[in-house]
Nucleic acid binder design. Structure first.
Length: 193
DNA sequence: TGGGCGATTCGCT
DNA sequence: GCGAATCGCCCAC
């Protein structure tokens, strides 16, 4: 059986609102551990909720670089969250990876997370970061080579959209995308579309 | 240089 | 449902 093609830089060099829904159903592995992307959120540089909105800083510098790289940041001083930088160089837009359906390296994820229930391994950006061993060392890493392995989806899934979670600005923008009906989301979608 | 706050999670009520 | 944990980032002082 042939693997689907790797997602390369050209895939990410488009509008974050095109890329985000197309990531649903794709495979994300870090050192061989991961699964199917079932939930993401889009953050555009003109969006007050985006880290890049205030302009370039030391933390968000990767967002201002070329597409196809990982932007990793610390959330609430506790969790590591993983983003994919999109759009042309300098657009400072990214997709936050919020949830996976775990399929590879289950034992490693269970050990890192300290829980056994599959649904609890990657059902949120912080959990996903812990399960995949994400940390600052991956900030700025290319997504088309190790330790990352990203594979295109093989079929177009049914996509749900809704409001983003945990933000205080631009809360009404429906830029959360998910696999409709998935049991591995961080939270259910109010309605699928 | 310090205070406030955050793209979260978990445990307790 | 609510609040603590926990700390780096950012901006005002």
């Amino acid at each position: 059986m042939t693997k689907p093609p790797r997602l390369r830089r050209a895939f990410f060099a488009r509008s974050v609102h095109e890329v985000a829904p197309e990531l649903i159903g794709a495979i994300l592995l870090v050192n061989g551990v991961g699964g199917v992307i079932v939930e993401v959120e889009a953050y555009h540089h003109t969006d007050p909720a985006a880290h890049s909105y205030i302009g370039p800083t030391e933390r968000n510098a990767v967002m201002f670089g070329p597409p196809g790289f990982a932007y990793v940041y610390r959330s609430y001083g506790i969790h590591w969250c993983l983003n994919f930088v999109c759009e042309p160089d300098g657009s400072a837009s990214a997709v936050l990876i919020r949830a996976l359906q775990p399929t590879a390296g289950l034992a490693a994820m269970q050990r890192r997370r300290g829980v056994n229930e599959i649904r609890a391994l990657c059902s949120g950006p912080g959990k996903l970061g812990e399960a995949l061993g994400i940390d600052r060392s991956l900030n700025g890493s290319a997504l088309d080579r190790p330790p990352f392995e990203l594979r295109a989806r093989e079929m177009k899934p049914d996509i749900a959209t809704g409001q983003r979670i945990g933000i205080s600005k631009a809360v009404d923008m429906p830029w959360r995308y998910g696999l409709a009906g998935s049991h591995f989301l961080s939270k259910p979608f109010r309605s699928s579309s």
